[in-house]
Nucleic acid binder design. Structure first.
Lengths: 220, 220
DNA sequence: TATTTAGATGAAGAAAGCTTCAGATTAGGA
DNA sequence: TCCTAATCTGAAGCTTTCTTCATCTAAATA
């Protein structure tokens, strides 16, 4: 291993011709593939290059080192997820909070479950210090989005919106992880989603009218 | 690195004299210390040995390889947590479900927050394939305990107890992770705990009287 | 005290993976 | 077509860390 020595921290080249951008894409995709196939521990730059159909040299032309490669792959994945959540937040502006919460829950599960293996593989990467930073930033962005969304709600919310957003996020994330980490069958998934909706709806309702929980049902 | 070659898979010696058990303890403790100080990536067996005040050779006398060392440290940590949860489950037998849920929530947070840094350091280890197995086993055990606990509840529960236990576990775990990963100040912690209790109480209440809840869920 | 056994030591071997770079190949423009 | 710049190649170097084992020390035993 020579990675502890001073290594380049910037890529040598930036894409200008078409083939180079193609290479970058292939390498990024291959990174995920290899991650899926052999796991983070056994992933090597050579393996990624081979899978991408290029040589190691090419890989190092666009990614200064292994760590940067992994981070880039993670960033890409996180970006896609955030975009998806953004979309939901925009769509739900001004809707009743209960509906917002449900929509968020469904959206989160859908995104992750759409590519469960990919999510799991990249989640492993994020447990490294650098990866944590990337996901933390994404979590913070989503948090802001949710706070904004909650602000647009027609109901009077008696709980601090930041706290509320955090609770919703971690609750949903908890269930999401459970589904990712255990290979849950399709049938279980539906049941879990129903329960999650129950949980989040129950919570936001509690935030709306602290004192009379069941009375809210008869609101006109 | 020579760890890919066939390596011993069992320790050379087993403690018989007092000094050896002391060594084992010191090594295990040092593992956590090093994990905390430099992180999983930069942890080396030599570093651990030095911190423990023994030589590498001694380390290898009790742990066949680095991986086994890390696993042992994780196992120890997980064992302590499970024991703590066990205690709560025993104490809560036959109590009202709402109280059970609250007790579980409080217990989980307390255990993790008692040694947040240690938890975080060891959590990083568990993201490796082997570590996952260890935590998965612990999660499964806790799951059974919770199901048993729920069975002892005086109320009539309309939801499948396994599903219910899973939901409770992942909800609590989600919030716990949130608290571990963000360095939440002491004040926030209390607020979060209050909210978590709100969430779980709300959920188990929904499980008790499905019909009344659904009426509100499907409202307009 | 002499003998045996448990435990400790740490220099050195081994091997794996990251990264480089000098030269080969390909695309685009004149 | 020919030239230049972009891109690709992959064997080899370098470094790091894991792991071993021959040897030494301390404890137990007779």
């Amino acid at each position: 291993m020579a990675q502890r020595t001073a290594t380049r921290s910037e890529p040598r080249k930036t894409s200008v011709q078409a083939r180079s951008t193609a290479s970058v894409g292939a390498i990024l995709e291959a990174t995920v593939q290899v991650l899926l196939k052999v796991g983070k521990e056994k992933l090597t730059t050579t393996l990624v290059a081979k899978r991408a159909g290029v040589s190691v040299g090419t890989l190092y032309q666009y990614f200064p080192n292994k760590s940067a490669l992994l981070r880039a792959a993670l960033r890409l994945h996180v970006k896609e997820i955030v975009a998806e959540v953004d979309k939901v937040c925009v769509a739900q502006r001004g809707q009743p909070v209960e509906q917002m919460a449900e929509a968020l829950a469904v959206a989160f599960l859908a995104v992750k479950m759409g590519a469960p293996k990919r999510s799991r593989a990249l989640y492993a990467v994020s447990s490294d210090v650098d990866g944590m930073k990337i996901t933390a930033a994404a979590v913070a962005r989503v948090h802001q989005e949710i706070v904004g969304l909650l602000q647009s709600a027609p109901e009077v919310l008696t709980t601090d919106l930041h706290l509320m957003a955090t609770v919703l996020q971690s609750t949903i994330a908890g269930m999401k992880r459970q589904l990712l980490e255990s290979d849950t069958p399709e049938t279980q998934l539906e049941a879990m989603q129903r329960e999650l909706i129950l949980v989040v709806r129950g919570y936001v309702r509690a935030c709306m009218v602290q004192s009379r929980q069941s009375a809210s049902v008869y609101r006109s």
